[in-house]
């Protein structure tokens, strides 16, 4: 049962990170390889706000959420906006470069050592007993709840609101959408903002559960196969993909070899790329467009 709980927690983490990839890809066909770094930046923003501005946990988290929105918006406005209409590869490489830049800058600002974010905002990460034998930490529980809420919110937003409809339309056919009067730049900016926000949320929660250092950005890379397994342009797909990757990872580590943890997501990635490159729920025709 403990294994099941672990799988659910890891699924939530991967799903919350993966939805950032999906949002940006679904809307603008750009793969954001800096997502892992943006995620950790969110956690460092919490470090900065709690150390400098507010010591109250709730205020600090609310401020961090605001800052992460600013970060996402400025990434689009200052950088990715210039890459609109450029070859997709150039845009992807720009995000790779952004990731490197952020990584270097974060070490320069906050140092290479691990920081305990939980202690900084006096967050008590007590372990909670769900049943007699199953225990999860408070942060992990929050992670599961937040992932659920974020997915609920995003699906409702994309399918019920006017802006969500515009986002989906831009993803399906950017040219046609623009001709019908949809402002692509606003839509793209919105996608980047939402993506960075959900990524930062994941970053904050995962670092509350352990500690924070720059190398945790690799979680972003490991969550990418989750997005791809489900299909890069499908939100429910990302949830299922995350479940597949997390279950395989937890089970293989537990029963076979702990060293496999870093390589399992990528083995699944290769398998799915060979068998069904557009993922379980992705749109098939996409392959010819990229």
């Amino acid at each position: 049962m403990q294994i099941l709980a672990n799988i659910v927690v890891l699924t939530s983490l991967y799903a919350l990170v993966a939805c950032g990839y999906v949002l940006v890809y679904k809307v603008s066909r750009v793969l954001n390889l800096a997502h892992g770094e943006l995620m950790i930046l969110g956690a460092y923003l919490l470090v900065a706000t709690s150390a400098g501005i507010a010591s109250d946990p709730l205020v600090a988290i609310a401020l961090t959420a605001m800052f992460s929105i600013v970060v996402g918006l400025s990434v689009y406005l200052l950088l990715m906006r210039k890459m609109t209409g450029q070859p997709v590869l150039a845009a992807v490489l720009t995000t790779v470069a952004l990731g490197i830049l952020l990584r270097g800058a974060m070490v320069l600002i906050w140092g290479p050592q691990q920081l305990n974010v939980g202690a900084m905002i006096s967050f008590d990460n007590a372990s909670i007993a769900l049943t007699d034998s199953v225990r999860v930490s408070t942060a992990a529980l929050w992670l599961v709840v937040c992932t659920f809420l974020v997915y609920l919110g995003l699906l409702a937003f994309l399918h019920m609101s006017r802006w969500g409809m515009r986002m989906r339309a831009s993803g399906q056919n950017a040219l046609l959408a623009a001709q019908r009067g949809i402002n692509l730049h606003t839509v793209y900016a919105l996608a980047w903002t939402l993506s960075t926000f959900s990524g930062s949320l994941a970053g904050v929660l995962v670092t509350l559960d352990s500690r924070i250092d720059v190398n945790m950005a690799v979680i972003g890379l490991k969550a990418f196969p989750a997005a791809l397994v489900g299909g890069l342009d499908s939100l429910p797909g990302a949830l299922i993909g995350a479940g597949v990757i997390a279950a395989l990872e937890v089970l293989l580590i537990h029963y076979v070899n702990p060293l496999l943890s870093d390589v399992v997501p990528f083995l699944v990635l290769i398998a799915i790329l060979i068998v069904r490159p557009w993922g379980l729920y992705g749109t098939k025709e996409e392959l010819n467009r990229v």
Partner: peptide, 17 residues
């Protein structure tokens, strides 16, 4: 090393853009 990381990222962005 982290400064050269950042410099790499910046240079790549400048050249790409």
């Amino acid at each position: 090393s982290s400064a050269s990381y950042a410099a790499f990222g910046l240079l790549m962005i400048l050249f790409l853009v």
